[in-house]
Design a protein around this nucleic acid. Structure first.
Lengths: 343, 343
DNA sequence: CTGAAAGCGCTTACAG
DNA sequence: CTGAAAGCGCTTACAG
């Protein structure tokens, strides 16, 4: 019987660790940790020695160990309503492209426009101790709001703007954009301008609000010209709603669709029905999605800067995660009217 | 001066831990760990007690700690070529939807059809000790292949099929599908059938191979009718290539576009040019993407089961990650010809 | 079927 | 500017 403590087989992972680098560079592990993370309090020549050793050994930091020790992971959770709307895919891709080189992984969360689902996702994502959070819009459950606030995780809101203090956001005024495209149709001489909306999420309703404000100011607002449908936005739904609209309101002389997929469906329905666009009915969309410039006739729409929003939000989040000062908390990236032949 | 060791302030994370649950349930931490992971070797009444305590305390396991201790995370990395092709978004969404309830997070990796990028992504993802891996197709660098094999991480290949032993895949025969749609055009009486391909990734070339095989068998293959363009597939490119084709090969009587976005562009170009579809030229696409059924005329295409592929691959991966036996290593989910008015 | 000990690979919190 | 110790919250590997 041995008096020595039982010798246990160490768990071999085969991984090159911080300790290996420390031994190779002849410094302590903590110095390696600091040098590699770019903390300023390390002598330049040591940083060099550590870098070289890490490179030579092919050292890759372990995200799990780092997360456990620092209680902060290298994940950024991005909550978007849908993956089937290319708008959000563009946003997601821009975020992903900006964060990856900075060492952050993007975790996608799809809420399906459901506050309950969002809350549940948030709950499960918080367990992952995300380093940062990007959420769509401001419309969420009170407990989701508190979950975010209580976690202390830096959070950037995208697609809409606010001037509320302490809130970080990158977006544009959906209402103003809705107003602008309606104004354009008015200037084209249209008076019976319909609004066709689907999904009816907060941003769609803000566009509708801009539409109303514009038409009321011109004295031509008619609530009967609003076609609001809660179903998911799609080309097929746009085609159907366009048909419905022309059947029930044959005197309509312009349609503002709240999203380009609906508008594309409207244009295709017009082709089928032999309705002349823009002669009989002018058509406008929103977002300037893929294919809108190729439609027949090409679609007038509002270009929304979702790629820029994604990049800007990701950069803002990087600043927040690094605790660097921010130039501004609220960024309005605007929108751009794109007039093509459909109006 | 005290003889006692220096009393350090413990790091307070405020988190409910396994230990808290163990104390509440009056068992050891390891029993909690086993009970919650569903290991069979725990007495049913203890499992119940642990479950209740965990529930009561609102315990959420820490993925980082779990990953560090077990050297396996709850992440599944999914490598797809592009996020801008809805095909892959459908796939991704199906995977995500299947894995999330099982407790796995989906990490997206976008390779841009570049083996070098894929290899780099793989390298960085492996540092995260993913529990599983889903990759697109079989075309990758030798070192990427070795990286996967050496890691021991379960991996499922999607979109294509093989019968190679030890390889797990879910897909369909791209070549057969290309053959089938070409056959359909032949049966419609077409003889000057063009192939328009973009991107030219392996799967596009497999479809081209099916097209060639079919036309050669019928004795009407003409290499001059193949228009291969390495640019990214898009509606706009489809429109341009359709115009090019009709200009240079005016006797073309049918076109098989390797992807629906190209075909949609072709149909829209035909509208602009006044080319009658299908009377003058029949048009067929591939994948049955959103909007193809709404085109004018509606697009004949091949429906590909990417949603089913995503679900099946995710389920297969779950089996592999849990070390449960697999019914089959290679799943062929087939394809379906969708004949509409464009042919 | 259950548990005490050790360890996963980092960073935090002190100390100097 | 640098380091020794402790700890993050789990699971592995034994032992009984």
């Amino acid at each position: 019987m041995s008096i020595l403590p039982v010798q246990r087989r160490p768990r071999a992972s085969g991984r090159v660790t911080l300790n290996d680098v420390a031994r190779a560079a002849e410094v302590s592990p903590i110095t390696v940790s600091r040098a590699l993370r770019g903390e300023r309090s390390v002598a330049p020549e040591l940083v060099e020695r550590v870098r070289a050793a890490a490179q030579r050994l092919g050292y890759v930091p372990d995200p799990a160990a780092r997360a456990l020790a620092s209680s902060r992971s290298s994940h950024v959770a991005v909550l978007i309503p849908l993956l089937t709307n290319t708008l959000f895919v563009d946003l997601l891709e821009a975020v992903h492209r900006t964060l990856l080189p900075a060492g952050y992984q993007t975790l996608i969360g799809v809420t399906h426009y459901d506050p309950g689902e969002e809350e549940q996702l948030l709950q499960s994502y918080m367990a992952h101790r995300p380093a940062g959070l990007i959420v769509t819009g401001f419309d969420r459950s009170e407990s989701a709001r508190q979950l975010i606030a209580a976690s202390g995780v830096p959070c950037v809101h995208v697609m809409e703007t606010t001037s509320a203090p302490g809130v970080h956001c990158v977006g544009f005024s959906q209402a103003d954009a809705g107003h602008a495209i309606t104004e354009h149709l008015l200037q084209r001489g249209r008076r019976r301008i319909a609004f066709v909306g689907a999904q009816l999420d907060p941003r769609v309703m803000q566009r509708a609000e801009g539409y109303r404000r514009c038409l009321r100011a011109a004295g031509v607002y008619d609530p009967k010209l609003e076609l609001l449908n809660p179903e998911r936005s799609s080309i097929a739904l746009g085609a159907q709603l366009f048909e419905d609209l022309l059947r029930t309101r044959p005197d309509t002389d312009a349609v503002f669709f709240c999203n380009d997929d609906l508008a594309q469906g409207g244009l295709l329905a017009a082709l089928r029905l032999g309705v002349k666009v823009p002669q009989q009915v002018a058509v406008a969309g929103f977002n300037d999605l893929t294919g809108s410039d190729q439609m027949w006739p090409p679609l007038t729409t509002v270009h929304t800067p979702r790629t820029e929003i994604g990049e800007c939000a990701a950069r803002m989040l990087l600043q927040l995660m690094r605790k660097q000062p921010l130039q501004e908390d609220h960024v309005d990236l605007g929108y751009r009217l794109v007039v093509r032949e459909s109006s």
